[in-house]
Amino acid sequence: MEYRSLGKTGWNASEIGFGAWAIGGDAWGQTDDKTALAALHKAIDLGVNFIDTADVYGNGHSEQLIAQVRKERREPLFVATKIGRKLNPHIAAGYNNRQNLTNFVEMNLRNLQTEALDLVQLHCPPSEVYDMPDVFGILDDLVQQGKLRSYGVSVEKVEEALKAIRYPNVRTVQIIFNMFRLKPAEQFFTAARERQIGIIVRVPLASGLLTGKFRPDSQFASTDHRNYNRHGEAFDQGETFSGVDYEVGLQAVEALRPLVPAGVTMAQFALRWILMFPEVTTVIAGAKTLQQAEENSKAAQLPPLSEETMQRIRDIYDQNIRSLVQDRW
């Protein structure tokens, strides 16, 4: 495993991180704690030291599993969590509220069984929040109080990321970036590098589309967001298949498939593509099983992709995907 500097946090994060949404037990179909814990342990065995979670993943269950693993390991682990999606209604005014943010942080502290949170991220708040300096002032105060060490944002749109990094103490931006979402590299990465912002890449496999394992007749459980959120019925459409129409995504995958080297899975190929961008700090690939955690980690060991392959991927994006997503996120 290789490691990259996580902005100004002072932390060197593993290139492949562990995305812990799926092990919360909601939104990704059925899972069980024994399997989830085995996946976490395997990832750490392979050098993963960055874990991303949120208070709403299983209503805190994901955080609680991570706390259990943290007690059982000696290795230093950096845990990033998120706050804000518990607001009901989920509106900007709810973030501009000291009591709300403090309550969320204290709940995270209890779930993770720690005295200070490594990194707290605003969890895809409404766009108006990025024009509310007081929100970031409250986070500054929580750092001063010792409840958290640093903070960042998780965003839906590139425009939100650009607004967020205007605030001097924003240390990280978590953003969707994959072979179906090239806009961050085109319009955000340079600004992030100039400000020494750590970039955490989420949805790297486009909700599994970029594993190459799905077919037109693939079925998803009723509790899986790939079943119930394809058109943004429950939350932002961009969270599901990166906002790409399922059939269009399958066609693009078939165009990409010949580019995958022998002996490499398409998922590993997709993760290695992301790591070709030096501005990226870590890729939080989701895993529900030991095998998935192992496969994800191996992507960091692959040799660099050729410029010819990188150009071909851009061509496929331009031909199949760009017009569908570029202006939306």
Rank of each mutant, 00 (worst) to 15 (best):
S323M: 10
F235M: 06
L65C: 01
A206W: 02
I165S: 04
Y246S: 10
V264K: 04
F78L: 04
P303R: 08
A192E: 05
R74N: 14
K157D: 13
R73A: 11
N103V: 02
A22C: 01
I284A: 00
D140P: 10
V173S: 11
H41R: 14
I197N: 01
L305S: 09
P125N: 06
T282C: 05
V201Q: 06
N12F: 15
L87N: 06
G146P: 12
T31K: 01
T81Y: 03
Q68Y: 06
D32Q: 07
I138E: 06
N169R: 15
P184Q: 04
L271I: 12
D327K: 14
M276S: 11
F180T: 11
I176W: 05
A221H: 12
L65M: 13
V135T: 12
L290I: 09
K71F: 12
D217M: 08
F180E: 09
A38Y: 04
A161Y: 04
A270R: 02
L112E: 03
H225R: 10
W329F: 15
N59R: 14
D327C: 03
Q292R: 09
Y95M: 03
A262G: 07
S14A: 12
K157S: 12
E156A: 10
S242M: 08
L112R: 03
A252H: 04
A164L: 07
N96I: 01
F180C: 10
Q30Y: 05
L162H: 10
V201Y: 08
T240P: 05
G286Q: 00
N49H: 13
D318F: 06
G47I: 06
F78M: 06
R314T: 08
T190P: 02
R181S: 13
M179W: 02
T240E: 04
I66D: 02
H225E: 04
E159P: 11
L77N: 02
V129A: 10
D245A: 13
Q145P: 09
N111D: 10
Y317R: 06
H225W: 15
I197L: 08
I313V: 15
N96L: 02
